[in-house]
Amino acid sequence: MGGAGYCVQGEGPNMTDRGYEKSVAAARGVRLVEEPAIAGAPKRPLIQLDNLSKRYGGHTVLDSIDLEVMSGEVVAIIGPSGSGKSTLLRCINYLEPPDGGFVTIGDITLSAAMPASSTELARLRRSVGMVFQSFNLFPHMTVLRNISLAQERVLGRSRKEAEERSMQLLKRVGLGDKAGQYPARCSGGQQQRVAIARSLALDPQVMLFDEPTSALDPELGLEVLAVMRELAETGMTMIVVTHEMSFAENVSDTVMIMADGRIVEKGPSTEVMRNPQHERTKRFLRAVHDR
């Protein structure tokens, strides 16, 4: 990922910010030409957020967020309730359209200043899988059908192909024997693992997790965390909003602390968790450890 660059045809290749570069190109009515990868060139991030903002009325929920996530990186986002963590995830996949800035996933860049087309949104969401606090499974469909349906509708796979892929993923998350069950017959931890398999079935480049264990008791939460750890070990790019401090420190590569709609600290997981530099981070971690 990230080996190719872009230049504005007729303008020269000296513009380096992909988000602004592409928006300027669109405004000028020129097209971007993908250049061949250059050996030794620095890798571009798989996810890039530039000056991302979100407001609800007079309340600013996200205040000029800049973030880069490299391919294969796992970023854990922690912080107090109401700090904008979940909203950030929803803006990345445009479930909540941002009010300002740019979102880039791979070779897709969307600008808040330009309404996204249905085609652009479909491409973006095809690249990004998301797992929510609630499982959002169809109760009238079997586990197998819950995972297969989107593959047929979105990817155009045949029912046979979709079911074969679904069974591979169910076995991967330890639920190969639950294919014919309905969600109500599965525990919360099992339902969340089905939801993860459903997201993986569309072959996303990125997985977003919004407090995936918050609705589960600790034992069932461990089942889900084990699957997420396995995904991390196999190189899946992940952004995880979590209150699981052990996961943040021991599984993620980077920890990012948010408060009041801003990133207050970000760095290697062990360093941030054990030796935070910002006073707001220190106060939050003290509160978590004192519980």
Rank of each mutant, 00 (worst) to 15 (best):
T234R: 11
G106M: 04
R193S: 09
G106R: 07
A201C: 05
D253Y: 03
L285W: 01
H140N: 15
E249G: 03
P183Q: 03
S127P: 00
Q181Y: 14
G12N: 06
I38T: 14
S199R: 02
A37T: 07
G176I: 02
T104D: 12
V131M: 12
P45D: 07
D50K: 13
V194T: 03
L144D: 07
D260Y: 04
E211H: 07
T213V: 06
E233R: 15
V103W: 08
L52T: 08
E223P: 10
T281M: 07
H289N: 13
R193W: 11
E249Q: 14
V69A: 06
A122G: 06
I108N: 12
S111K: 03
S158R: 04
G100M: 01
M130T: 08
G188Q: 10
G100Q: 13
I263G: 05
E211W: 08
Y94T: 08
S86M: 09
L62K: 05
L67V: 05
I105D: 07
R165W: 01
L32S: 05
S71P: 00
G82I: 11
P276G: 04
P45N: 01
A179W: 01
E249F: 00
A195R: 01
V227Q: 07
H278V: 10
R125C: 09
H243K: 06
I77G: 03
A112W: 02
G40N: 05
G176A: 04
R126E: 06
R44A: 14
V103F: 08
L170D: 12
T281K: 07
I65D: 07
P212H: 00
P97N: 05
P97T: 06
P218L: 00
V288F: 12
V143C: 05
T60K: 10
A37S: 14
R193Y: 13
S187P: 05
R185P: 04
L285S: 10
K266Y: 00
A150D: 00
H289V: 15
Q168Y: 03
D260H: 10
L124A: 12
N14T: 14
V272A: 10
S246K: 12
R229D: 14
A215D: 05
A25E: 11
N136K: 14
Q151D: 12
S127A: 15
S214W: 06
Q190E: 15
V75Q: 02
M114V: 14
V272R: 02
A122L: 10
M238I: 06
S187Y: 08
I263D: 09
A116E: 11
L222T: 13
I47G: 09
S166I: 02
K266P: 12
S127I: 03
K85L: 04
F209A: 02
D66R: 11
M236N: 11
K22R: 13
R55S: 15
V128M: 03
R31D: 03
M15C: 11
G19N: 07
R198E: 00
G29E: 07
V103S: 08
L225K: 03
A232T: 05
A248V: 11
L155Y: 06
V103K: 09
L222C: 09
A122C: 10
E279P: 01
E11T: 04
A26L: 13
P276E: 01
I47C: 09
R90F: 02
V240Y: 01
G189R: 05
L52Q: 01
S199I: 01
A150H: 01
G12W: 12
Q9G: 04
C7Y: 14
I263S: 08
V61T: 10
R44L: 15
M141D: 00
S118G: 00
S269G: 07
D63W: 09
R90S: 04
A27S: 14
